[in-house]
């Protein structure tokens, strides 16, 4: 691990004609970190990734990958990046082996090491058995894996994945998240998604972007800590909210519907007290769920005030 940031983005802006897709974006990523890029559809996630990989020119600002400017020395900068775009760039009429070999050659891997690189990336992505099959005949999940294999074949320090789990079934999703976690141990990974649990499961850093602006940036750990602990309870014979508030440690009560309540508390969990009270006063407790969907709450809270914007502007 080096102290210098691997990816450094400064004051990045991008305009399509007069509309701005991203405004004044700045962030950096260190080696061995996984950054989750969150945002509603059309928030500018893909645009940012296209700029990071040199597929789009920024209107203003700078991108440095391992110290190489993407505009001034694109060849060196691109050598450091593996990129899986939104639509995996696959040649359907080629076999997996042919395709990966071509990608390896494009990334300037020497002839002697190509076969080895091929084997390693196939093995990492679970493609060892389908090497001879045509990409066009593979299922969507396997195609997505080929896309990832293509991005990691030259063992780049930075891996950029644009919505890697879109259109996959839950088992494939789990496999790919697993893979991303594994990759995150050696490489820096930037991952865009609108699936929140994915970020919580895989990322070290989370970044929320809305309307092209960075509205939240923090590490997952601080995010989890900063969240006030809460739990949801369901009672068949509920008392008044006032009664619930008088329970030990409970600071705030929110009614979800007539029978279910969200309790916020400090310090020790009041679960024990709730169960006891429920028995004594016959509240008939039937449900008790410790709160956990913190990121989702945060996400909705941060992005909701502006959901009434014209979708045409954002869908660029």
């Amino acid at each position: 691990m080096t102290s210098q940031a691997v990816v450094q983005v400064e004051n990045l802006s991008r305009f399509y004609q007069n509309q701005s897709a991203i405004k004044n974006l700045s962030f950096s990523l260190n080696a061995g970190e996984v950054l989750g890029f969150l945002g509603p559809n059309g928030a500018g996630k893909s645009t940012t990734m296209k700029i990071l990989t040199g597929n789009l020119a920024p209107s203003e600002g700078q991108v440095r990958i391992k110290g190489f400017d993407i505009i001034e020395s694109p060849r060196e900068a691109k050598q450091q990046i593996g990129y899986l775009p939104e639509h995996p760039p696959l040649y359907c009429e080629a076999s997996v082996d042919e395709y990966l070999k071509y990608c390896a050659q494009l990334r300037g891997i020497r002839r002697q090491s190509i076969n080895k690189a091929l084997d390693v990336s196939k093995q990492q992505c679970g493609l060892s058995d389908v090497g001879r099959r045509l990409i066009g005949h593979l299922s969507k999940g396997y195609q997505q894996r080929v896309g990832i294999a293509q991005a990691i074949i030259h063992n780049p320090p930075v891996i950029i994945l644009d919505e890697p789990t879109v259109g996959l079934d839950p088992i494939q999703m789990r496999d790919i998240r697993h893979l991303i976690k594994k990759l995150g141990q050696e490489h820096s990974v930037i991952l865009s998604t609108h699936i929140l649990s994915e970020v919580q499961a895989t990322c070290d850093q989370v970044q929320i972007i809305q309307q092209g602006e960075l509205i939240y940036h923090s590490s997952i750990e601080t995010l989890n800590l900063s969240q006030a602990p809460s739990m949801t309870i369901g009672l068949n014979q509920p008392p008044t909210i006032e009664q619930l508030k008088q329970l030990d440690q409970v600071t705030h009560v929110k009614a979800i519907d007539e029978q279910r309540f969200e309790l916020f508390f400090e310090g020790e969990s009041p679960a024990q007290a709730i169960v006891q009270q429920s028995v004594q006063q016959q509240w008939e407790l039937y449900e008790l769920i410790p709160g956990q969907q913190s990121l989702e709450d945060l996400f909705i809270e941060l992005t909701q005030d502006e959901t009434s914007v014209d979708p045409e502007v954002t869908n660029k």
Binding site: R75, P85, H87, P89, L90, Y91, C103, R107, Q150
Partner: peptide
């Protein structure tokens, strides 16, 4: 059309 141009553009080639 197939979006494979991205592969070439994001590779270290001019």
């Amino acid at each position: 059309r197939n979006k494979t141009l991205t592969l070439l553009v994001s590779s270290p080639i001019s």
